[in-house]
Every structure is written in C-alpha cells, then in structure tokens.
C-alpha cells in the first residue's frame, strides 16, 4: 500500500508535526498543551510515517528502540523530582531558575518532568505500534 502522494506529504508533515509537538510541550505550562499531548502528536507523526513507508523505515528513522525511550523518560521524570534533594527539600518540590528564556519561558524542574512524560508517551505509543504491526505481518 505504497502511495506517492502520502509519502511526499509525510516527508513534509513529519518535521512539522515534530516541531508542533515541541511547541505543545513547551507552551503547555501557560496555554493548552503539555507533555502528554505533545508526546501523542510526536508519536502520531511516526505512525503516519510508518503507514506511508512501512514500519521498518519508521524504526530506522527513529533509530532508538522505544523501550529505551520509556526508560529514559521515566528516569528523567524521577530525576526531576529528586533535584529537590540537593537543597534538602522533599521529593518533587519544584525548583525554578530565575532566568527567563525566550521560547521556553522560565526553566524549572516541572518542565523537565513534562519532558519526561513527553518521551515516555512517545516510547509507549511506538512500542505498542511497532509490536502490533510486527505481529500482524504475514
């Protein structure tokens, strides 16, 4: 089921969807968005790619085994909670830097946590997607 139209469109859509997912992730703190939706959009991008080019190509594009993404995301989320230990605060106390960055706004541990959620969601969705599509292969 290879379609030139879909493939060409996907080539342009993939980077845009990924950019959009980052946008959602970073704006989440002040406007609708966030790590969960961002992660879903990013996985939708890869899902689209795997429909257009096949799962093998999508895996090649991702380069990294989704299970590692799950692990990385969980560790990141956990670590963001542990940063508070360094100032002898309780687990998950939010820490903010006072600097204001363009695009990101203020940087703080909740943003890191959200990034962890984002990565975990991509890992989970793609792991399920890849596993199922491999299984149904003739």
């Amino acid at each position: 089921m290879k379609s030139i139209i879909l493939q060409t469109a996907t080539r342009y859509l993939l980077p845009m969807l990924l950019l959009f997912s980052f946008f959602l992730l970073f704006r989440g703190h002040n406007s609708p968005g966030g790590g969960f939706v961002g992660g879903l959009v990013a996985s939708a991008a890869y899902a689209l790619y795997s429909i257009a080019f096949g799962v093998e190509e999508a895996k090649k594009l991702l380069r990294i085994e989704p299970v590692y993404l799950i692990a990385t995301g969980l560790m990141l989320a956990l670590f963001s909670g542990m940063i508070a230990f360094f100032s002898f605060d309780t687990f998950m106390t939010a820490k903010w830097s006072d600097l204001n960055f363009p695009l990101f706004g203020k940087l703080g541990t909740p943003l890191l946590f959200d990034l962890g959620v984002y990565i975990v969601v991509i890992g989970i969705t793609l792991k399920i997607l890849f596993t199922i599509s491999e299984e149904v292969k003739p």
Partner: peptide, 9 residues
Amino acid sequence: GKGRNIVNV
C-alpha cells in the same frame, strides 16, 4: 506553579 495553564500545572 509559575504557570497559567492550571490543568498542566
């Protein structure tokens, strides 16, 4: 929470 999106905060 330093964020305006209550749901996300």
